[in-house]
């Protein structure tokens, strides 16, 4: 369950962003749509506990995210939330497999290499497990970012414009992967996008 209450954010310059209350009661995937500049990314950061709102609450399951201390929120985010950004960022010194394993390590989960390899198989990138992450294409990197956000089996996966930098073929692949993999780990997928290629896939929508 994801719920927001009177969520506002004020940048130092510019008018305050006031977000509608959101309520996604079950594990169905949800889409937050909006044009560029309407505050979609800000909202995603607020939902994922990456940015503190000026006022309002974000409730994930039974937890009011902003009643937690910063370090408690870090731990909560690590264990329960996976985030995929428009541009995938990795630790360049590590291989593909190590970048995925890093997610398990940072969350104190068992570093099961076989599990990581199974997930790599699911995205057809097992053969690149030991390659430097920088050697992968943008589409491949986005698939690895999805695996990394899911491997530790979070309850919520937030994706910020995950397909806006991809062509149609890669977009189809990524959408399919998101839907399949979130089902596999029983996570709720919340996608923030202006990309209407998601419209036909997710019924649960909020327009900003």
């Amino acid at each position: 369950m994801l719920q927001t209450q009177s969520l506002k954010y004020q940048y130092p310059s510019g008018k305050p962003l006031v977000f509608p209350d959101i309520h996604f009661p079950d594990e169905q995937p949800a889409l937050i749509l909006g044009e560029s500049g309407c505050g979609k990314t800000t909202l995603l950061h607020l939902l994922a506990g990456l940015r503190t709102p000026t006022s309002g609450n974000v409730i994930l399951g039974q937890t009011n995210l902003y009643s937690l201390t910063t370090s408690e929120r870090d731990v909560f985010r690590g264990k329960n939330i996976g985030v995929v950004f428009q541009t995938a960022h990795f630790i360049p010194s590590l291989s593909v497999l190590e970048n995925i394993m890093m997610s398990l390590y940072l969350n104190g989960k068992v570093q099961d290499e076989n599990k990581a390899k199974d997930f790599l198989n699911l995205v057809n990138l097992f053969h690149k497990a030991f390659q430097p992450i920088g050697s992968l294409s943008v589409g491949e990197q986005q698939r690895i970012a999805i695996v990394r956000s899911i491997i530790h089996e979070p309850q919520w996966i937030f994706a910020d414009e995950p397909t806006s930098a991809l062509d149609n073929k890669n977009t189809d692949q990524v959408i399919h992967l998101f839907m399949e993999m979130t089902k596999t780990v029983n996570a709720q997928l919340i996608v923030v996008t202006h990309d209407n290629r998601w419209d036909n896939v997710i019924a649960n929508k909020v327009q900003l």
Binding site: T70, S71, D74, V75, R77, G78, H89, F90, I91, L106
Partner: peptide, 16 residues
Amino acid sequence: KKEIAIMRTMGATRIK
């Protein structure tokens, strides 16, 4: 910077 931010997003605490 982004690498550190991603680590934090994945659950790395400030102390870590």
